[in-house]
């Protein structure tokens, strides 16, 4: 279980004041749960995710995973990034094995261990290609395979499909669903797409902004496994329109700070 306990994050602004990015954020994510965080730009959802990853420290509060507080990155977690962040000088197989290499395996061992994960994301024939030769969707499949390859209990996904076009995005969502059904991992998924959150998640956290805080946590009462058909069900539509209702008041505010 991941417990987010009264997390706060403040930044010092250039004019000497402080900017409160997150305030009193508390919630918990159950094991094997697909948990999405949705909110307008600048609500601190990416910062929150990076705190769970151990890349950013909260100014106040604590994150506790299975009883032990987070003090940095850990072998139990792996992250998928919005802009893929692949090593441009390394081929795809080395990229997928990168996490294993960071954890001490040799290049050869990690490449070998990476192969099945390349198959799992449907890139079997691309082991020796380089990132720039792949489309955005394929690059993010590499990003996902790299995270899966270290066998994390928790997958942290930061708007992973945000940089993709609509069709690719939908395909990736379906593939992620399929993979997640098999892998059974805890996922925290940051997104700004209501559709995506409803389609993928067990629960959705809607965040408020200025400062970023919990607005509400929604259950997604859709049966699994899900397919495209759920997108046209009344439950799905009710959920997304509810989220839209919650979010519309927060966006379009001209005084909002620049997106994170």
């Amino acid at each position: 279980m991941i417990e987010i306990r009264e997390i706060g994050r403040q930044f010092n602004t250039r004019d000497g004041g402080t900017f409160e990015a997150l305030k009193d954020v508390s919630f918990s994510v159950k094991d094997k749960e697909f948990f999405s965080i949705i909110g307008p730009s600048g609500c601190g959802k990416t910062t929150l995710l990076k705190m769970v990853a151990g890349l950013v420290r909260p100014t106040s509060g604590q994150i506790v995973i299975d009883g032990s507080p987070v003090s940095g990155p850990g072998n139990d977690r792996a992250m998928v990034f919005q802009h893929f962040v692949l090593l441009p000088w390394a081929d795809i197989l080395t990229n997928v094995g990168f996490g294993l290499e960071m954890r001490g395996l040799s290049r050869r061992e990690s490449r070998e261990a990476a192969r099945p994960f390349l198959d799992r994301v449907g890139l079997t024939g691309f082991a020796e290609h380089y990132p720039h030769e792949l489309s955005g969707g394929m690059q993010q499949r590499v990003g996902l395979a790299r995270a899966l390859a270290v066998s994390p209990d928790i997958l942290l996904m930061d708007e992973p499909f945000g940089a993709l076009d609509a069709q690719t995005r939908q395909l990736m969502q379906e593939d992620l669903m399929r993979i997640w059904d098999v892998e059974q991992k805890t996922v925290i998924f940051v997104t700004h797409s209501m559709d995506e959150a409803a389609y993928l998640s067990d629960r959705v956290l809607v965040m408020d902004t200025h400062p970023g805080k919990v607005r509400e946590v929604l259950d997604v009462p859709l049966p699994r496994p899900r397919d495209e058909a759920v997108r046209t069900t009344p439950v799905f539509n009710e959920l997304t329109s509810h989220m839209w209702h919650e979010l519309r008041g927060m966006i379009g505010d001209p005084t909002a700070p620049a997106p994170e």
């Binding site: 151990g54 940095g72 990155p73 977690r77 990034f81 962040v85 290499e101 960071m102 954890r103 270290v150």
Partner: peptide
Amino acid sequence: DLVEMGESFNGTQWRLFRKV
């Protein structure tokens, strides 16, 4: 972003230096 990605995989500083 590359450095942050490398850090997220929880290796040593030396590996981060050598591999990223």
